[in-house]
Design a protein around this nucleic acid. Structure first.
Lengths: 270, 270
DNA sequence: GTTGTCCTATTGTCCGACAATCCGACCGAG
DNA sequence: CTCGGTCGGATTGTCGGACAATAGGACAAC
């Protein structure tokens, strides 16, 4: 019973046709390419669908690989290939030091890192990211101003305080700046924007470290902006929040210019 | 030579410690969890890094699985698991009907679909997505107004025309609306925003179809807004573009309300 | 030039195996 | 009766080896 359901046959390629339509949305394709999904994809899709439809919920443990192999009537290796895909998609993960895989919701960090790969490989530059921040961050701040809770304020204050207190060359300073943005996102109560923001922050982080160290006045300006923004949140004043966040983000660009980093520097990994 | 580099040994788990710091950023960790990366992760990371560092470029064909297995000194199955991860990440793919894998840049659609999974599983609602659109789309339109080329205008006009001409129950109408947004993104010349937009559009598409069919005046209003936006782009007038896009997006929400779709409807797949 | 044939490299899938480890059950000491 | 060892089964990570089906090319036949 080997080779049970190997790749289904497929007809000869439509060489001419595909060449023609390679240019611009060409004429009638007449035939669609016959679909041939390897088993590992079908297995992965099957599980994926059960997760997306909530048949498998966040926290559920998956059956063992052997069990899955039996159910799908494929070999364990095939199941494993499928699991690796779901793992990368963030749909399943292994709690540290556990054996079985559990269903999980893709964490922001995972999604952001995927986005970041894309940005890097598409030669996105600092200005591009900065522009996106200019669009998103001020509005997030405004939303946060109307929705923040006391807990949000406390957390922001704490992080801002920690940043102010951090010694000069401390590499954690960057993390604290990132945390500030992250908390602000949380206070906006909008997961979509949080997800988008996170990618930007990640993409910027490496060069931010560089910038903070090189521009002496950067720490002071960042600190001031944070204080103003927190004040605006405290007053539930979205316009103030937006205004100061705008300034804050603009400052980043100025910082980069002062640091001698050209705006069209491509984003890098680490 | 079996089990050559199986999982490295690891000390007993720090049950107490991990429980303690599970709460909030607890005290000094003193010890970091010992890292144990399975071989398939290390292989995947190794290849990933070569791609991100441009040692392997877009379009390059990867060595055969057997060859990779030999180079990494692991079994072919292990290589395959690594490849499946890279495949899902969009870093490599197989051209339809080809045998070898080629390096590729993650396409917007791939990234967006990952984002969408996250949105669905985090119970993101229509308002959340709408809010994000309200933040992003008007600014994208404004950017597009200053940067659009004649080609952009032509493409937009063509899609808008096609939408106006599409028959009443045509399911392709939704795609045309999506295309309009996509082209606008392209005209903004900012990949970052394009990537973010795409996710929103995808998340909204299913229910959009629903809405267009149920609200008679929707088509007319969409068509009008598109015309106004195109006019603003033609005049290179960012303020007009922003204004009309704002209206346009606001209209979407009104449409949903008219269609009787509650704003806190969770986003779904399909 | 197109079509048919043959060969080789490579993928998709499977079988079977084993060490390391996790997990829960069991058990003796305080 | 709780707490810290011990033991065996279940499960993962990895490996060696195998084979059918296909992609891609070389080459002969029409």
């Amino acid at each position: 019973m080997n080779k049970r359901n190997g790749p289904p046959p497929r007809p000869a390629r439509r060489a001419a046709a595909s060449a023609a339509q390679a240019e611009e949305g060409a004429a009638a394709p007449l035939f669609d390419p016959v679909e041939r999904e390897p088993a590992y994809i079908r297995v992965s899709s099957a599980i994926e669908q059960k997760i997306l439809s909530r048949t498998l919920r966040d926290g559920d443990v998956l059956p063992s690989e052997t069990e899955l192999a039996q159910q799908f009537r494929v070999h364990r290796s095939t199941v494993r290939e499928a699991l690796r895909q779901l793992e990368r998609a963030g749909l399943i993960q292994r709690p540290p030091g556990a054996k079985r895989m559990v269903v999980s919701r893709p964490q922001a960090a995972k999604v952001a890192s995927g986005m970041r790969h894309a940005l890097v490989l598409h030669d996105v530059t600092f200005v591009d990211v900065w522009e996106a921040m200019m669009v998103i961050e001020p509005e997030v701040a405004a939303l946060a101003a109307t929705r923040r809770t006391q807990a949000d304020l406390d957390a922001l204050l704490q992080v801002s305080e920690a940043f102010r207190a951090s010694p000069k060359g401390d590499p954690r300073a960057v993390d604290l700046v990132a945390s500030f943005f992250e908390l602000l996102g949380a206070a906006s109560r909008n997961q979509v924007l949080v997800l988008a923001k996170q990618s930007l922050a990640e993409a910027l982080a490496p060069s931010l470290a560089n910038m903070i160290d090189r521009v002496p006045q950067a720490r002071q300006r960042i600190s001031d902006a944070q204080r103003r923004i927190i004040a605006a949140l405290k007053d539930k004043n979205p316009d103030e929040a937006r205004k100061w966040m705008s300034k804050h983000v603009r400052d980043f660009r100025r910082g980069y210019e002062l640091a001698g980093i050209p705006p069209d520097t491509p984003i890098t990994m680490d």
